[in-house]
Computed example of a mutant assay.
Amino acid sequence: LWALLTPLLALLDRIALLSAPPEALEAVADRLDHVAERCGPAVATYSNPAKTLAGELADALPVIWTEGTSAGPAGRRFAAALAELAGRPALVAELPEALAEHSALLAGPLAASADPEDFFRDRVEEAPALHARVVLLRDRPIGGLTAAPAARDLALGHDTPISELEPEEGDALVTLAELIATTDFAAVYLALASGA
C-alpha cells in the first residue's frame, strides 16, 4: 500500500493539492519501520499488538469503532483488509454515531452474554458461537471531546469484549500510517491463523 501511495502523495504535494513534503514522507517511513519492528512475525504475541488483536478476533465478529481524523479511514481500510485477506466480515462506524447504530447489535444474539449455555459447551467437539468484539481505533478526537468512555461503557455493559488501538503522537499522515500498518498486520495474522 505505502509503496504505491508514497509517489502519489509526493505528486499531490508537488501540485499543491495536499501537504506531504519530503520530511513528512520520511516521518511516515520511520513510523512504518517502527510498526514493522513491533508487529513483525518474529515478535512474540504478548508484546505484538497485531498478533494480539488477531488472536482476539479469531472467533469474533469485528465491530470497528473509530474516533479521530486518522482513525476513520484506518477503520474502513481494516474492514476491507479483513474481508479481502481473512474472509471475515466487519462492521465499521465512527463515534459517537456508532453508539446508536450498534447498540441493538450488542444487545442481540451476537452479544457475549447471549448464550448462557456456552459455559457447558464441549470445547473439543462444538464450535464456539460467533460473538461481537468491539475494536476501538482512536486518534486525536475532533474538537477535543471524546466518546471513548461511553463506547467502553456500552460494550462492557453488554458483556462485549473491547480491543483498543491508539497511535503514538504525530501528524495526521503519520498516525494514519501507523493505524493502517498495525491493522494490516493483524488482518494478515488472522488470515494465516484461519487458513484463509
Rank of each mutant, 00 (worst) to 15 (best):
G72T: 14
A79R: 01
S47R: 12
P41C: 12
G72V: 15
G55F: 15
A83I: 11
P49Y: 10
L91V: 13
T66W: 01
A86Y: 13
P49N: 12
W65D: 03
Y46D: 14
R38T: 02
T66P: 08
L25T: 03
H34D: 11
H34I: 02
A16Y: 02
R77L: 12
A71Q: 01
A93N: 03
A80S: 12
A83G: 15
S19D: 13
R38C: 04
L82F: 11
A74T: 06
T66I: 02
E97Y: 09
A86K: 00
G72W: 04
A79T: 07
G75Y: 03
L85C: 06
V43Q: 07
T45L: 14
R31Y: 07
S19E: 13
A71C: 08
R31N: 00
R77C: 11
E26D: 08
V43P: 02
V35R: 00
I64S: 05
P89S: 05
A20L: 09
T45G: 10
A20K: 05
F78M: 14
L57K: 00
L25R: 04
A90N: 00
L17S: 10
P96Y: 07
R14T: 14
E23R: 11
L32K: 03
V43G: 01
S19L: 12
H34S: 12
A29D: 06
V92H: 01
